[in-house]
């Protein structure tokens, strides 16, 4: 049966016919492709506009200098605390500490016999 099948040469004829009848892009397709190229294109380097310098007002500059809104919040808190201390008429800031954090802290002796070692070291070791 092989001699009745197409051979290599016959297949080449089919390939040649297909190459000769290759599809060509239509004008509409080329237009769409070029439209896409235009849409995706970057502006030419020489056409790039120079970015305008950014102008900042005095308040904006001050805000920036103290750390923005976070800095302003911290500053407001400090001012408020100072006003409260002044209005309350506290004679001694230690009183404020005592009021806020309670009485003097407890002393906890972690090594009750530490003094004995000190004494022993000083007497002949």
């Amino acid at each position: 049966m092989a001699d009745k099948d197409l051979g290599e040469h016959d297949l080449d004829l089919f390939f040649a016919a297909a190459r000769d009848r290759a599809p060509e892009p239509s004008g509409a397709l080329m237009a769409r492709v070029l439209d896409a190229a235009e849409a995706e294109a970057r502006p030419a380097t020489r056409d790039l506009p120079t970015p305008a310098p950014v102008r900042r007002g005095m308040i904006a500059s001050l805000m920036s200098a103290i750390g923005g809104w976070i800095g302003v919040g911290g500053l407001a808190t400090a001012v408020g605390a100072g006003v409260w201390i002044g209005v309350a008429g506290l004679a001694d800031p230690v009183t404020v500490t005592g009021d806020l954090f309670g009485p003097a802290p407890l002393t906890v002796e972690l090594m009750p016999g530490a003094d004995s070692f000190t004494v022993a070291g000083g007497t002949g070791w």
């Binding site: 070029l34 190229a37 235009e38 294109a41 970057r42 502006p43 030419a44 380097t45 056409d47």
Partner: peptide, 10 residues
């Protein structure tokens, strides 16, 4: 084309 040359795209 990457630099903006439309002719290259054609």
């Amino acid at each position: 084309y990457a630099k903006g040359d439309r002719g290259a795209a054609h």
